[in-house]
């Protein structure tokens, strides 16, 4: 009786590749395979050179990204990293302006799920400019930002959902993901277990959906918990530099985990005090006064 030949390492790899392809086809995912780094094709430029370079153009969509504040010397770690999340919401809005979708870009909504991650509405009400535009590198500040006109007010398109239980928050996120007019979902992802995060991850990858950015805000302690998020980020206040004339809040961000080994694990994109180009900063001139005239 002839015995079957032992698979060589090459044929073993090919089989794995075929299996991966078959699973991807069955799950309806079209973008997984074929990409060298196993990352979905749609990417939103963040305006942060290190991050955009790392991901080949921007933060990948169709996946959950988790963010947490790391600030051991102050109680700020109890808050959601809203400065960065608001920045990404604006970036997603700018990216949508250049895409032709079923829902016009000016009608696409942002859903803030959980009162813990509701930003102050001033950060969503800008007259003409993107809040971080002046501080981004000219090379990555692409023309898409020029399309942000007066009508691009995120506050008009923001829905704030007060949901306390994790079950409700996940249900809200899943419901919002099914809506093609939702472009960004910012979720209070505290207490989000592995099963729930996997549900969200699969929901955002479902075929036929409009590209949606799914951002989760967590506490630093929870970043060690298992999760299906494709990236996990730490946000910390930028160390003070008295020689820096810019009197704006600045943060350092570091990538603490990434799925699928797209890059070596570790800290990337650290800037601020160590670099002339801040990763994320707020410019005082972008917030404009509202409601000064009595009606």
């Amino acid at each position: 009786m002839k015995s079957l030949p032992a698979p060589s390492s090459l044929s073993h790899a090919a089989t794995k590749e075929q299996l991966r392809e078959a699973i991807a086809m069955r799950e309806g995912r079209t973008t997984l395979h074929g990409d060298a780094h196993d990352v979905p094709a749609e990417r939103v430029p963040t305006g942060w050179p290190a991050v955009d370079t790392l991901f080949g153009g921007g933060l990948p969509l169709r996946g959950l990204h988790e963010w947490a504040i790391e600030s051991p010397r102050s109680p700020c770690s109890a808050f959601a990293p809203l400065g960065v999340l608001v920045h990404l919401a604006w970036r997603m809005d700018a990216w949508c302006q250049n895409r032709s979708t079923a829902t016009p870009a000016h009608a696409r909504m942002i859903v803030w799920i959980g009162a813990w991650c509701w930003p102050h509405a001033d950060t969503l009400a800008l007259g003409l400019r993107h809040p971080f535009r002046e501080l981004e590198q000219p090379s990555v500040d692409n023309d898409s930002m020029k399309d942000l006109g007066e009508t691009s007010n995120l506050w008009k398109r923001s829905i704030f959902v007060r949901a306390t239980s994790m079950i409700d928050r996940v249900w809200c996120a899943e419901t919002a993901l099914e809506d093609p007019s939702v472009m960004t979902i910012v979720l209070d992802a505290r207490d989000l277990d592995l099963t729930a995060s996997r549900r969200l991850h699969l929901a955002v990858r479902r075929d036929g959906l409009e590209p949606t950015m799914l951002l989760g805000a967590r506490t630093l302690r929870e970043l060690r918990e298992p999760s299906a998020a494709i990236t996990r980020w730490r946000v910390s206040p930028c160390p003070i530099d008295i020689h820096q004339p810019l009197e704006t809040p600045r943060w350092d961000i570091s990538l603490s985990r990434i799925k699928s080994n797209v890059a070596p694990l570790g800290t990337v994109g650290v800037a601020g005090a160590h670099d002339d180009a801040p990763v994320a900063s707020m410019d005082p001139s972008w917030v404009w006064r509202q409601g000064s005239v009595p009606s």
Binding site: A121, I159, D168, W171, C172
Partner: peptide, 30 residues
């Protein structure tokens, strides 16, 4: 329709929008 679905499950006062006011104070401007 998403707004309606969220409202139907969570209640009318749990799904909100912001509206600008004519107040100066940061906590009352919206």
């Amino acid at each position: 329709k998403t707004t309606d679905l969220l409202t139907a499950r969570l209640g009318r006062l749990q799904v909100l929008r912001v509206r600008p006011t004519t107040r100066w104070a940061p906590e009352a401007s919206w």
